[in-house]
């Protein structure tokens, strides 16, 4: 356990890097996922096809495969960047599929009468979606969306292992494999770092859930 105290700065750095990966990916995935959900319920068939193709591909492919495909594929398309950005892009694309499904099921949970009423007073598709349905869907969507984000925080460890480096898990691998510390102590520190994010996240989610809960 001494290793945690001895290398505390390394752990702190790793924690910050993990936080950075999660922040970028969470914002990206929420935006992209909501847009995709809009695609999936839209009256325009090509957009619906894009939405469902995205969900089918990214929900059924392991994150590790997505990450490797992004890291090898994007440079061929002329997009160059550090592994950090490739990692964030991979995690964003992957998580967006789950965000999309959560938002879509939220949209479907808004009772039909609401959308019918919106249509009855002459609102267009985008007006009824953005003014009537989405604000209500948001409440139902908070719990599943929170679970998606917490799962994403845990998935960020895969991003670290795949070579972004510098995050909590990568620091742990470095300390055990390269510097030869006993794995039990090192990895306990790494675990504590993740639990520091996921458990308060879960509690926060529970509070939010009670706050936005609405009888329907």
């Amino acid at each position: 356990m001494g290793v945690i105290v001895e290398h505390f700065p390394l752990y702190a750095q790793g924690f910050l890097q993990t936080l950075r990966i999660c922040l970028f990916s969470a914002v990206g995935a929420l935006v992209l996922g909501t847009i995709l959900a809009g695609f999936r319920v839209s009256p325009v068939p090509p957009l619906r096809a894009v939405g469902s193709a995205w969900v089918t591909v990214f929900r059924n492919t392991p994150l590790a495969v997505v990450l490797f495909a992004v890291a090898f594929g994007l440079p061929e398309l002329g997009v160059n960047g550090s592994y950090f950005y490739f990692g964030v892009i991979g995690l964003t694309c992957y998580t967006a599929a789950f965000v999309c499904e959560a938002v879509r099921s939220g949209i479907n949970s808004v009772s039909a009468g609401q959308a019918e009423a919106a249509r009855a007073i002459g609102l267009t598709f985008s007006q009824s979606l953005s003014l009537i349905v989405l604000p209500q869907a948001l409440r139902t969507v908070v719990p599943p969306l929170g679970s998606v984000i917490i799962a994403m925080i845990k998935n960020s460890a895969i991003v670290g292992a795949f070579g972004v480096g510098g995050d909590l898990f990568a620091q742990g691998i470095q300390l055990t494999s390269a510097q030869g510390y006993a794995a039990a102590g090192v990895l306990t520190g790494v675990l504590l770092g993740y639990l520091l994010l996921t458990i308060p996240g879960g509690i926060l989610l529970g509070v939010l859930e009670r706050k936005v809960a609405v009888a329907r």
Partner: peptide, 20 residues
């Protein structure tokens, strides 16, 4: 606790700590 642990770390933990 087990729900909060990233799977990839659980695997790595098993592979490194169990031999120890």
């Amino acid at each position: 606790f087990l729900r909060g642990v990233p799977v990839v770390i659980a695997i790595f933990f098993a592979a490194r700590v169990l031999p120890e």
